[in-house]
Design a protein around this nucleic acid. Sequence first.
DNA 1: CGGCGCGCTGATTCTGGAATCAATATTCCA
DNA 2: TGGAATATTGATTCCAGAATCAGCGCGCCG
Lengths: 234, 234
Amino acid sequence: MAEKAQTAAKKSQSRAEREADRRRVILRAAVEVFSRKGYHGCRIQDVAKEAGVAYGLVYHYFKNKDELLESVFASGWQNFLARVSAEILADHHVAARVRGIVHVAFEAYRRDPRGVKVLILEVGRSPAGGAVNRGGAFSAVILAASEMFSEAQVRGEIPAHLHPTLCATMLFGTIEMGLTSFVMGLLDKRDDEAIERARDQVAETFLHGLTGARPTASVQPPPSTGRARSRPTS
Amino acid sequence: MAEKAQTAAKKSQSRAEREADRRRVILRAAVEVFSRKGYHGCRIQDVAKEAGVAYGLVYHYFKNKDELLESVFASGWQNFLARVSAEILADHHVAARVRGIVHVAFEAYRRDPRGVKVLILEVGRSPAGGAVNRGGAFSAVILAASEMFSEAQVRGEIPAHLHPTLCATMLFGTIEMGLTSFVMGLLDKRDDEAIERARDQVAETFLHGLTGARPTASVQPPPSTGRARSRPTS
DNA sequence: CGGCGCGCTGATTCTGGAATCAATATTCCA
DNA sequence: TGGAATATTGATTCCAGAATCAGCGCGCCG
């Protein structure tokens, strides 16, 4: 819809750029406000104010409030999804892959706590009939992870009697609640080191259990596809 | 408010009873509707229709929509809270207590999936500023569980380097997502036996980890306070 | 440099649903 | 049985907030 500006070469480009910027600003503001007051607890006006624009403009860029949430979700989740998928598909021992997934999740949180909060609290849990159709996307990751565990069983890396899907949900449940501790202020979210320790504990406990947990599995990240290289801040 | 009817002995009693019934019917209907469309996605009218009463009546029994949700929460959570607390306070090895907690949660689900769904999806996750102040209640359980793990560390039952609070959140995260698998239809909620297997897997994986999970820890419930005795169906 | 189109604005309209309330039915007690 | 007290109803009021739209002014083009 905004692509009509592609008539000329350079100038129009700059215009399109500014448009995209606006869009991003609004999206950003939406994340901010959603995380503060929740989707239902805020008006479009709040988002507009946060973004420093008239609220009519929000409708210029997004069809309605739902589409706004949908976009917030898409922009946040796609990214996360891609990274997690990469971890899942890597062909390492399942333990390494699990560590990778945990790592990705916590890294995402460290980079953008607000965004993660919205994902967790708003999008992740919208009631069945709800507006946003993100249930599918969520299931997709679970499914992929199930695959991974299933495969790990074939390779004999984990016991055969475990239900792969349940393993997958448990993994994400563990991660999610780990993050929620921060989101809800049960743990100090300022402390970067605490976040790292939490991350390691989550991974190790999931892998070796409460009773068998090892004395911290060193901080160096597990060997995996791309997680390690420090990506451009973005 | 309805207690004024206690003037006489028998008849008035019956009246009070019918009132309480009504109240319960409405509460029940609310759970039903909330679980189907979510708190924000439904009108008072829907609840009334489900309960088979006029919606004005809902206001006779509950001050407003919020109080209705609050009550749904209270009636469901108090119960659960009490049972979980009992498990937490029992002085068994921490493993037994963990099993007990998991057991209670799954039992609650088996008895009333709808109710658990509402608790998980609506109440458990309401965004910070939200209406219902149940965050406190939730934190309370986490805190209690933290205590338990802390104590277990003193007794040397689990490694000292683990963060007790994180252990607690992980435990409930694992449980919650385990249940969510059913709520979301990732696993077959009809299959009673599947539920039991899931329950055991959740407990054992949490305790011994993915890699160390034992070949199913037998179905017989762990030795704990009162969980074992099959309570009157209700 | 003049005018025109499109990004942008915010007052205005519209909608849906919460909460009220006056009227009606039912129950209870003397 | 009468009538006071209470339960129940649903049309009505009221309002928050979503979505619209008519116009304004900035920037771009010839």
